[in-house]
Each structure stands twice: as C-alpha cells, then as structure tokens.
Amino acid sequence: MIQVRELSKFYGKKAVVEKVSVNIQRGQITSFIGPNGAGKSTLLSMVSRLLDADTGEVLVDKDDVRKMKSNDFAKRVSILKQSNFMNVRLTVRELVSFGRFPHSKGRLNEEDVRIVDQAIEYMELGDMEDSYLDELSGGQRQRAFISMVIAQDTEYVLLDEPLNNLDMKHSVQIMKILRRLVDELGKTVIIVLHDINFASVYSDRIVALKDGRVVKDGPTEDIINSESLKEIYDMDIPIKQMSNCRICVYFNS
C-alpha cells in the first residue's frame, strides 16, 4: 500500500498540492482525474521522488520513501512522466532493456532478456524493436516508454497520462495490459487519465483532485455519477449504462 499523508507542495506562496492524504491499495488500478492544473502530475512526482515534497510524507509498504536507497526504490516504484523529451538515439529494444537497469546495471542475464522480450511483445513493438526512437511516431515512442516501465517490473507502476498521443486501438490495448498486470501479476497501477471513460471502465478506484486538494476518493462506481462529476469538473455530464460499462457523455454538455 502507498500511503500519502498530508502532502503539500508550494510554488511561491501558492499551494499546488495542499495537504493531500490518500491510501492506494495494492493489486488495484487507481485513477487520478481532475481538471488541468489540479496538481495530479505534481502529486505523482512527489510520490515517485522526482520532486521533493514541502510537507507531509509518503510511505510505500510502510517505508518512508525519503529514506529508501535510490536503487531499491527503483525496483519497487516506477514512473512514466506526462511528457518525455529524450534525444538519446537508442533503439526500442535498447530503451526497454534499460528498464532492467535497477536490477542488472546494464548486464542483462537470461531472466532480464526474457522480461524485456515480454515487455516488447505486450506493447506490440516486435517489428520495430530495432528502430531508433527518433524514427518513430509520437504514439509508437510513447508505447516504447511504457514498455520500458513494464520491463522495470516494479510492484508499483505510476503513469502520468500514458494515453497521450495514442490512437483508440492502442489506448484500449494499453488499458487492457494494465488490467492484466494487476489481475494476473498482482501489480499496483496508479494512472492519471483525462478521458473519464477509460477511468470508468478500467479502474478499481478513482481519486479526483481539484485545486490541489482531493475532492473525491472512492470505488469507481461511487465517483462515476453526474453529481460527483459536476463537483469535479463543473459540468453536467449524463451517464449511460452500456453492457457493464458506465459511459460519461460529456461531448455536448
């Protein structure tokens, strides 16, 4: 379990994340939603130690993240940021192999190679594994990054808007893979999503942020209703039930 306690981040006098406390259960997909600037990325960055919190603490399975060794932390928690600028010329396979870095320091053993193969296969990158990243499309590159994080094989996987740049097919594919990581391998996935329908269909829990505070936190079915969405987004969004899925029809509200 990841416990976030009273976490705050200030830029100047403005608190962009303010006394946020949430518990993230193991073996679930927890989606973070909320309007632009709500503080979702900032929160994820603090949980994953990319950013230092100003107050509060984060515990991963009861261990304070600030006290963990970098390498141990990297074996337990991985993160993919919202935007990734990388001008290192690596092939897809090389990039994904670096996902094993915390475990192998670059000297891959058989087990590492197997995990890398699997991560590439999950993301259907097999036929472009020897292409250089700068020769790929934005969405293909995004899939390569996700594949790298999967190869890192951590208990907790944090993804900040991983569906950026992806077409419908690959968005669905990635959400299904995340579901498999959780259901079959017992991983814990924390994901920031803007499309609430993906959140609705695939997540176990939803945490909604607004102006740096948690405004909703609960099982998916408790959050995906017109009332709660009104509170989060200031929009009247009707919900339609379609074969097990609750779809938010927000396009003309």
């Binding site: 994953s48 130690r49 990319l50 060794k69 970098s70 390498n71 141990d72 932390f73 990297a74 074996k75 991985s78 993160i79 993919l80 940021k81 990734n84 600028f85 990388m86 290192v88 670096f98 996902g99 870095f101 915390p102 994080v149 890192q152």
Partner: peptide, 11 residues
Amino acid sequence: MGEDFSRNLGL
C-alpha cells in the same frame, strides 16, 4: 536520458 529517467531507474 535526463534527470527524471535517471531517478526512475535509480541512478
């Protein structure tokens, strides 16, 4: 790969 990637990989 950059500071954030490095930190993610425990470097």
